[in-house]
Design a protein around this nucleic acid. Sequence first.
DNA 1: GCAAAAGTGTTCGCAATACACCCATGG
DNA 2: CCATGGGTGTATTGCGAACACTTTTGC
Lengths: 226, 226
Amino acid sequence: MEKNNPLYKEQGIHVISSLFTVEHGVVKVLLIKRKNEPYKDFWALVGGALYNNEDLETGIEREIEEKTGLTNLNLKLINVHGKVDRSPVMRMVAISYLGVIDINRVNFQESTLKTSAAEWFDIKDVKNLQLAYDHAEIIESAFHELKHQILKSNILTSLFPSGFTLPEIHQVYEAILEHPLDRRNFRRKLLSLNLVEDTGKYFNFAGKKPAKLYKFKENIEDTDIF
Amino acid sequence: MEKNNPLYKEQGIHVISSLFTVEHGVVKVLLIKRKNEPYKDFWALVGGALYNNEDLETGIEREIEEKTGLTNLNLKLINVHGKVDRSPVMRMVAISYLGVIDINRVNFQESTLKTSAAEWFDIKDVKNLQLAYDHAEIIESAFHELKHQILKSNILTSLFPSGFTLPEIHQVYEAILEHPLDRRNFRRKLLSLNLVEDTGKYFNFAGKKPAKLYKFKENIEDTDIF
DNA sequence: GCAAAAGTGTTCGCAATACACCCATGG
DNA sequence: CCATGGGTGTATTGCGAACACTTTTGC
């Protein structure tokens, strides 16, 4: 391995996260506005260059914490984007992670060295934005994978740190999958999986029957859900 | 992006393939013996450093062709391995691909600049070898993914370029999944998927009833198989 | 008491599973 | 003619899909 062979000199690694949330039945993705070149003033996913002294997971967690204040996320490696010209500066390969977070937990770090703003965008509006790098493609791939993940893993646990009602989580599934699910079958299925437990509490919406509050059990493993 | 920031200077990308075959009910993985440092004389997976002027897919296809003469493989991106110290030379992130090939198609290029031998190893024997880098871990992850892929994609098509009998492919499934499958149910299931077609030919084993020869249809899409 | 949404139970159909017998060939 | 392995059919079961009624609350 010759370090200075021009065939593979000056390469780098991006770690990039597509962070999703669901609010009032709308799937949203977190974007930040870049302060520096390249792609100054473009909206971009949360991420950046991997450091030499950190593992991939550490790197993406650091990037997310720097820009959102969030820690302890349940991230999943989902894809790699490595087209020759995806970065205008030098050859960069992007390792793409997926995460789902409760919108209320996010505490944006408004003024960092590299970003000037952070905002949630409706996934349907993202296609109208000019994003930095190949981030549009990365989001598309991540959203596609999100649909799989909610059927095959417990990725949604972090969406509801303080519990959820069945109508709420049902709406989340429909929003992400973009098609309706039968209420009663959904309910029976989810409860039969032994992933959630009744908290005994109820949650009141205005003028309607209160709904039971459930929460995910601790330490549940990834399993096929649907 | 400052090219010379020591935090992320001198990084590189490995593209690495776990190539599997199944012969007489035994799952095998292709390894090559390294001729150069680091890990001189260690067995290793087929792969190497990504060039700056090629996409990831192109890179892994080039590496495979250089070392085995094989082209037109159906490779799947399956994982990323990026621990800080996985390479002793410099920071390298490995992009791992999975492929399945017919053992008869392989035409080893015995004398290349970087390798001195290529050999198929029983997957069960690999754990007793000292492999280069973190290749043991990569193989384990790839084999795990192979079990999923034969249930959810048509990755096996390239195992049988000249067709197969149902007993043959049945044995392949059992070998990869490492557990028995009911012959009759397997048969019905596979034929009902519309993935294979009868060639009208028969294949004779010694002293037994000839088996029908089937082949995969052209241009079949990935679908859930089991 | 009525509108609105939560909660519950039953039927149906299909697909996976389990299982037993007949058939074609080489020796 | 027999041993070996290939090829076929059927009964059962469990799960997902479709579907309608009752309950609780705020107003």
